[in-house]
Nucleic acid binder design. Sequence first.
DNA 1: CGATGTATGTCGAGT
DNA 2: ACTCGACGTACATCG
Lengths: 223, 223
Amino acid sequence: MRLVIARCSVDYMGRLTAHLPMAPRLILIKADGSVSVHADDRAYKPLNWMSPPCKLREETIDGVLTWSVVHSKSGEKLVLTIEEVLHDYSHELGVDPGLRKDGVEAHLQELLAEHITTLGDGWTLIRREYMTAIGPVDILCRDELGGTVAVEIKRRGEIDGVEQLTRYLELLNRDPRLAPVKGIFAAQEIRPQARVLAADRGIDCVILDYDALRGIERTDTLF
Amino acid sequence: MRLVIARCSVDYMGRLTAHLPMAPRLILIKADGSVSVHADDRAYKPLNWMSPPCKLREETIDGVLTWSVVHSKSGEKLVLTIEEVLHDYSHELGVDPGLRKDGVEAHLQELLAEHITTLGDGWTLIRREYMTAIGPVDILCRDELGGTVAVEIKRRGEIDGVEQLTRYLELLNRDPRLAPVKGIFAAQEIRPQARVLAADRGIDCVILDYDALRGIERTDTLF
DNA sequence: CGATGTATGTCGAGT
DNA sequence: ACTCGACGTACATCG
């Protein structure tokens, strides 16, 4: 990891063309080869950057220090013209042990599958990740009358999730062993427009309470 | 802008729960209040971060240095436990003059509207951003036989773009002054699955050559 | 303020 | 290697 603070101008020629006029900025060079140019705002997003794999070449042209970063595959190019280096510090960090995450969609799916009766008394799970030609349906189950139900789970329910479930339902309903298949769109939060579209398609909406589902799971292991 | 390299462990409690075990990392504190924790890889993306507006509080609990960053609106929390500070440097950068960009979707739409015959000889523009109840169609035009054509433009053509165009077509075809309306899905690059779905819906796909379109525009102003 | 569409999205998983 | 969907997506624009 190398940290350079310098007055520089930057030109990016790649998926788009962009230019940054001369100003003091942080240039961050990571061990994976990536280069990013940060201002003192915009949260963690750099003004400009190059992702690995790429190569940095330092050269002096007519007395002007220039750093050229070229992407090894696409040929995208980032050119930094350095006017003045204000700080330059390098430090070896080593490989990071990595991040452990909890609480994403996969977990929601797991929890709902284990507690499928959340959707209704007498409901039973057929299986999680039920495979179809166009991809896996999150949950396939039966309601209390034995009717097939396909459940699409999202953290936030938006229109494209309803479209996705619609495509699954269309396919599943071609299978005479399953048809008729009802749809349930389940999410922690469902956008009004998605709700309207779902209603129009005859799909039921269910709000999932993540904490409550997790609570069922952990009633025996509370602090 | 403050750059700290330190051995630290990190806990995030917010939209999800995450933990980073103790290891040396870069902690980047910007003037806008944002805090990000970087490893020596993963391009520009931090392992963990807090976006502004947020507040950083440094305190020592039982001899352990702790930085708590709390988001001012959502209450999300990032806690850094610092074991050893290896480098600590601050520098005022001032306000950045900002980035100038070229080459996005709006420009593609403009260019295609101006050169609608790219789609076919004798084609004519009805209008850009043709308004419907569910939103504006990118381009509405007539083919050489006077038939109405709705064009959806994307930089990258994916399934949801086809869905969007399908909804527009359904609506436009209810207008007897326009019907029948054909659909064209135009993009610099179209995903195979999007292409299949489009074919199934009777929608034509067109690949847009941004450089060529821009070339028509600039033949008189070359370097 | 919510809804919508773009992004140099990035990232990871599956094929 | 490529495709696809999720993301603590973030972000701007528009109603």
